[in-house]
Amino acid sequence: MEMFSNANDFLIWVRGDAFNIALFILIIGIFIRVMEIFLLGRKKDFSEPRGTEWGPGLKNIVSRSVVDSGTFKRAPFIVIVGYIWHICFFIVLLFFVPHIELINAMLGLQWPGLPSQLVDAATVIAIVSLIAMLWHRLTHPVLKFLSTYEDYLVWFVTFLPLLTGYIAFHRMIDPYPLALGLHIFSVELLMVVFPFTKLMHAITLFIARWYTGAMMGRKGIES
């Protein structure tokens, strides 16, 4: 903290320059990754289409969210905890009023928030489910063997904003500007890491699902 004379200085930096840098890297990174995918293109399909592409493609984006029974039987823990984690994470991200304020300021979109106690409960569940998934990764022999440093990095940068957010909300670090500053800073870390790791799945999943659906649709297969 040498470069900051007090916690407020840190918060001012985090809300100002640091956020701009993180946003800059996030956007550039996403563009590079997405354009790489699209510009690489696909081999031209010369076969006679037996169905449409767009409808099945869009449908597939939604329908793939339902787990098929085979996957569930093979990895029930990952499916259940994965669902709990994602739902709670989105409740926290999208329905905590200070977050809505941020989205409104950046994108001009606004919707009603949830009471803080509900968001707080969702945070706790999200934190617990993330810890459970790390535990699962470390104790499952195959999963552990397959895990790389990136998996742990991704876990860490996802975990930090939840933890610091919980700490800031409950004002467990004094003074508050430091607690809030650490929370925003941890989100900025996540923003920087996001485009260059498998966190990109939050965007590429739509491309991948659409493509699978579109490909099947062209072949006339129900997906």
Binding site: R15, F19, F24, I28, L39, L102
Partner: peptide, 30 residues
Amino acid sequence: KALSIPDGDYAKAAGYAVATGVALGAAAGF
């Protein structure tokens, strides 16, 4: 401005980022 909203000129940062991102993305793509 609510405390949770960044205070810098993030619209400008985002604008530059989009332009740079498109250029770098195109370069990487080609």
